[in-house]
Write a protein that binds this DNA or RNA. Structure first.
Length: 114
DNA sequence: AACCTGACTTCGG
DNA sequence: TCCGAAGCCAGGT
């Protein structure tokens, strides 16, 4: 039996983020078993978000900000999140205390075990 | 087939 | 608290 690769775990975890919630690059990486692999999450979003139909807009940085720049998807991402009732403050930040997805271990295992 | 790079995060000084 | 450097790794060139 083959253990799911880090990449596969990340894809499943992103897919599991519920509507109306967000997660962070580092958070996903940690759930997938490697707290320092935030950049791989970025990489995976680039390579697989379209192919796998991932809810890519539900991933933001640890400050609760959209990491994209204007005209590179920032506006689209913000709009998609607002459509899910995710609120932004005056400085374009999301209150992570309210919207961060915090799955229980059981929930995580469900998505990371083959 | 190497080398570069990225929508980041953490760590040590 | 602040800043530079390391960590991570696969897809594109």
């Amino acid at each position: 039996m083959t253990q799911p690769t880090f990449t596969e775990k990340v894809i499943e975890l992103i897919r599991a983020i519920p509507e109306g919630c967000v997660s962070t690059y580092g958070g996903i990486a940690r759930l997938a078993g490697n707290p320092r692999a935030a950049r791989q999450v970025v990489r995976i979003l680039h390579s697989s978000s379209r192919k796998e139909g991932l809810p890519w807009h539900r991933v933001v940085n640890r400050e609760g900000c959209i990491a994209l720049k204007s005209f590179q998807g920032y506006d689209l991402q913000k709009q998609l999140l607002e459509n899910e009732a995710v609120a932004f403050d005056d400085s374009g930040r999301i209150d992570l205390d309210r919207f961060l997805w915090r799955p229980a271990m059981e929930e995580v295992r469900k998505h990371t075990v083959e």
